[in-house]
Each structure stands twice: as structure tokens, then as C-alpha cells.
Computed example of a mutant assay.
Amino acid sequence: MPETGDAAPDFTVPLANGDVDSFTLSERLEDEAPVVLAFFPGAFTGVCTDEMCTFQDRLAAFNDLDATVYGVSRDSPFALNEFRNQNGLEFGLLSDYNKDVIADYDIEMDFADLGVYGVAKRSVFVVNGDVEVTYAWVSDDPGVEPDYDEVEAAVEDAA
């Protein structure tokens, strides 16, 4: 798992933004840093919906800091677009359908009792324009949401 001060693993995945585009972290950092990568296990689930809606509710604060928020999950970009639409999310969602990013960030978890394998642990990484992780939070408990004030403070420090 990347720690604070490490270089963020670069990746290219589909971006669900109402359409489906391509997203490459290193390219986006040129204009959108700092970037908040909020990994979540799965769209349309209770805690994940609450988390993404809370980021939406706080989006103005992140925008005021010139930060860009992205949610990241294993869901397909098509499912993520529907999730965005149903929840009024104005930020992009990244589809790590092949689990490459989850593997690179070493945040894979399973819900073996449900037969669900290889989803993202609930995690937040803030990456600055130098491709450096300036904040890293990973929960082993999928029912725990991040400390949003702490994330916002980390973004302010990275800006």
C-alpha cells in the first residue's frame, strides 16, 4: 500500500462521467492536483452510497481548494454512471473492473461469506501534482467511513 511520501502508482481506467472516457492519473494530475482517490467496495450498497454522497455534499469545499475528487470501485463504468445518476454525483467515478489498481494499491478485500472477491477496501489517497501520496487512509472494516474533515485538511495541506 502506498504510504504518505510514496509515489502514487499510475494507472489508466475507464472514467464514468455521464459518458465513458479514459482516465490516466499522471495526466490528470497536471491540471487537477491535488486529486482525492476515494476507493469503495461497491456501488449501490449502503455505506458506499453514504460515503459517495458525503463526498458530493462536501464537493464545494474540495473545489474551493482546487482539488478533484474521484470515487474508485470494481464496478463497470456503465453501472457507475447509473450510480452517479441515481445519487446526483457531480464527480467522476473510476472503474477498476480488472482489479489492477486495487492490486497496485494493495487494498484488495473479500466478502467470502457472500462469494464476493477482490473488491477495494474503503480507502482514501490524496495525490499532489508531484505524483506524491500526501495522505493515505485504509480501513479493514468496510462499515467505517473516512474522517471527511481529516481528508479535507489533507487536501488543504497538499494544495
Results as ranks from 00 to 15, higher is better:
residue 3 E to T: 07
residue 159 A to M: 14
residue 42 G to W: 01
residue 97 Y to H: 12
residue 40 F to Y: 12
residue 124 V to A: 00
residue 149 D to S: 09
residue 78 F to P: 15
residue 29 L to K: 06
residue 76 S to Q: 14
residue 71 G to V: 00
residue 17 N to E: 11
residue 1 M to L: 07
residue 8 A to I: 06
residue 140 D to W: 03
residue 2 P to Q: 10
residue 3 E to S: 15
residue 2 P to G: 06
residue 43 A to G: 13
residue 107 I to E: 09
residue 10 D to W: 11
residue 34 P to A: 07
residue 94 L to H: 13
residue 144 V to E: 05
residue 131 V to M: 12
residue 25 L to D: 05
residue 88 G to S: 09
residue 150 E to M: 11
residue 73 S to R: 09
residue 93 L to C: 12
residue 8 A to H: 04
residue 47 V to P: 01
residue 120 A to L: 13
residue 102 I to M: 05
residue 131 V to A: 12
residue 38 A to D: 07
residue 74 R to G: 11
residue 114 L to E: 06
residue 132 E to V: 06
residue 152 E to M: 13
residue 107 I to W: 02
residue 140 D to L: 09
residue 127 V to M: 05
residue 77 P to C: 00
residue 23 F to D: 05
residue 134 T to A: 00
residue 12 T to G: 05
residue 11 F to N: 11
residue 132 E to S: 08
residue 135 Y to N: 11
residue 102 I to R: 02
residue 145 E to S: 15
residue 37 L to W: 02
residue 8 A to E: 07
residue 145 E to H: 08
residue 60 A to P: 08
residue 101 V to D: 01
residue 96 D to K: 08
residue 48 C to K: 00
residue 144 V to D: 04
residue 11 F to V: 06
residue 80 L to S: 03
residue 142 P to Q: 13
residue 21 D to C: 13
residue 33 A to W: 09
residue 80 L to I: 14
residue 140 D to P: 08
residue 83 F to R: 01
residue 114 L to P: 05
residue 111 F to S: 01
residue 97 Y to K: 11
residue 86 Q to D: 11
residue 20 V to H: 01
residue 118 G to M: 06
residue 141 D to V: 04
residue 127 V to P: 01
residue 26 S to R: 09
residue 7 A to H: 13
residue 46 G to V: 14
residue 46 G to P: 13
residue 49 T to M: 02
residue 72 V to C: 12
residue 18 G to V: 14
residue 9 P to N: 12
residue 25 L to Y: 14
residue 153 A to K: 01
residue 77 P to N: 03
residue 10 D to I: 08
residue 133 V to S: 00
residue 106 D to L: 11
residue 77 P to M: 07
residue 26 S to C: 07
residue 39 F to I: 12
residue 95 S to P: 08
residue 150 E to Y: 12
residue 154 A to P: 14
residue 79 A to I: 00
residue 116 V to I: 11
residue 73 S to G: 03
residue 100 D to F: 05
residue 108 E to N: 12
residue 85 N to Q: 13
residue 22 S to A: 11
residue 120 A to H: 10
residue 89 L to E: 01
residue 90 E to W: 09
residue 24 T to V: 12
residue 152 E to N: 08
residue 45 T to C: 06
residue 26 S to W: 06
residue 53 C to Q: 08
residue 97 Y to T: 07
residue 20 V to Q: 09
residue 102 I to D: 02
residue 121 K to T: 09
residue 51 E to D: 15
residue 2 P to M: 00
residue 70 Y to S: 09
residue 37 L to Y: 00
residue 75 D to I: 03
residue 59 L to E: 10
residue 126 V to K: 04
residue 109 M to V: 07
residue 51 E to W: 07
residue 63 N to L: 09
residue 53 C to D: 00
residue 12 T to L: 04
residue 135 Y to T: 12
residue 13 V to H: 04
residue 108 E to F: 00
residue 91 F to R: 14
residue 78 F to C: 09
residue 118 G to V: 04
residue 40 F to I: 05
residue 25 L to H: 08
residue 89 L to T: 08
residue 32 E to P: 07
residue 68 T to E: 02
residue 1 M to S: 13
residue 45 T to E: 02
residue 50 D to G: 14
